[in-house]
Design a protein around this nucleic acid. Sequence first.
DNA 1: ATCTGCATTTAGATCGATCTAAAAACTTTT
DNA 2: AAAAGTTTTTAGATCGATCTAAATGCAGAT
Lengths: 362, 362
Amino acid sequence: MYKEGIIDLFPYLCQVTFMPSRDQKKSRVTLLDVARRANVSRATASLVIRKSPLVGSETRARVEEVMRELGYVYNMGAARLRAERSHTVGVIVPNLTNPFFAELLSGIEAMIDEAGLVVILANSGDLPDRQDAVMQRMREHGVDGVILCPAAGTEPTYLRRVAEWNLPLVQALRQISDEADYAGVDYAGGMHQAVDYLVSLGHRRIAFAVHGPIHSAYHERISGFGEAMQSHGLGADMIIRVPNQLGGIASSANLLLNRPDPPTAVICFNDVIALGLSAGLYDCGVKVGSDFSLIGFDDVTDAEAMRPRLTSVSTAPATIGNNAARLLLNRLADPLRPPERIVQQTQLHIRQSCGPAMIAAV
Amino acid sequence: MYKEGIIDLFPYLCQVTFMPSRDQKKSRVTLLDVARRANVSRATASLVIRKSPLVGSETRARVEEVMRELGYVYNMGAARLRAERSHTVGVIVPNLTNPFFAELLSGIEAMIDEAGLVVILANSGDLPDRQDAVMQRMREHGVDGVILCPAAGTEPTYLRRVAEWNLPLVQALRQISDEADYAGVDYAGGMHQAVDYLVSLGHRRIAFAVHGPIHSAYHERISGFGEAMQSHGLGADMIIRVPNQLGGIASSANLLLNRPDPPTAVICFNDVIALGLSAGLYDCGVKVGSDFSLIGFDDVTDAEAMRPRLTSVSTAPATIGNNAARLLLNRLADPLRPPERIVQQTQLHIRQSCGPAMIAAV
DNA sequence: ATCTGCATTTAGATCGATCTAAAAACTTTT
DNA sequence: AAAAGTTTTTAGATCGATCTAAATGCAGAT
């Protein structure tokens, strides 16, 4: 194949030096070029890139030197074809715009990057059909595994089907099946913290304001709310749906107040709702923190900047992302390990948006 | 998996049928399998996937049927090796956590996805060194092109170096070099809109509150502010740096008020600052919208939910993302076209945070 | 029957790495 | 000095697609 051409002034170098304009497309430096130049075989050069301990230190140094000299760029694509490993991980989220998912993604990316892999991103729009299309695309691109934040309405059988493809998958935030790894939050626990706190302030008529698509995280919060209320001997029938858009939420605040038996406190499904209701209550002339109590969920950075500062249950999305990524990396290392769950605890961050219940109300 | 056909002349099928457990890793369905089964050559099957008009319609139908039957999955990796095209685009942002970049990313992803490509995501942390590392990784993964939101401190020579790699690159939001495509916003124009509006309300002592890393978008806003002020015969010397973290911004509001010659209005570098100052001014007992005027920049969704509602210069990050993606796709289609710039106009969204200047102040 | 033109189809080389199994180059032991 | 053991290096096959250039089949024209 390649001849042991002694130092024949290196055809490659000449090419680069003398015809820099024509090497537009063709002249990619390959491992073979490196090998020839360093007087070793392709195989040895390959071992050097992969930092194998098999190669002699003097040889390694020489090869590395040549790689630098020629400006060699590793061709992951070629490697993947042979090695059946792409060093690529798919991440599918329902919505990039929501800061919550953005933070989740940020946590995932940091960990995946640290492991030397790369994130392929896709947006499912919370639509199972699009999610499936996107998943196919990931498969075609040969991702080593997928972190999926399942779209609302994803069936457990769907995850089983993915498993049949031999595609490692981690569920994030929403748990569809217990046969796959899962990284999430103890939403129910968070609801308990919120309810307990409000009850300790004397509130008894507590509403839960929700919106958005229905998925496991949704159910878990609803049922957590129910249980927590029940544990205090209270009814959990005030579950109020508000619009999805921030603008609409504010204007639905008066619906809360004009009920026959209005609540004295509201727990919000997320901070977006809390932000909207806070604005809406302000518009109604209600003073949040004294006249009325409000608790958010997620504890996004805005919570600190609101006036009054928002008391919120923090779910640390970046940490969840970290956990999800770690789960996937572990599974890639050992595909046969049993499914694992990492369910993170929430923390109630008490600020100013809650006050003692006004007894006069009844 | 799929059941045996009636006519099992096909060795491939036998293999699958008789040793379904062992095919865990090995038995990937390849184009050759499809071709054999459909009684055509590998080449023809390849043409079918790529929707070439060269194949007869009857043949096409048969091959497609077989592909479905065998559950064939296209191997992009193999294709890319030969075709030198990965259908992959790198996107590098300084920070995923900032909702502004999240929206930008969302806009990019939507367009790239529509074109049938896939986004490889990376975070530069606004650090040139990390940015370079990440860029190398992208190169190794063979991305067809990169959309880069350059880290603060990126040198023009760096972009030239990238060009030498024959790696198509689009700059987003921050323009380092005019030799590469650029998608951004007319920041200076936005500053003019803000200043003009405040001046029309009678304000003359207008401050500009800034923070964050120094980059082209920063300079452009600063100089836009200067020019706009000057065009009204006003001095632009009140440029005030506030902390980067939301928490710290609020507490720096009183610095504004305690100056020897305090401003009557502040334009903020972005909505995060506006949000923080709004809270801080509230803490000081100052009524934003009547006692004091505040203008944000970016017009994120929160602007609508603040009280008073925030007047803000909208920059439509998702649209910028769209533009950036479109520029890249155009360049991939024709690498030799001259560099193009898409600079989007801003729009002043007037809400409630500004009022007429109080004449008593002097 | 032969030729020309057109639409289809195909064999075989190829992309750039990794893998396997074995050879070569050194040590150390006998 | 030969044998045995270790460390390093390597030839050649291989991954699964695409590309090139040529072959095939089938009209209608000669």
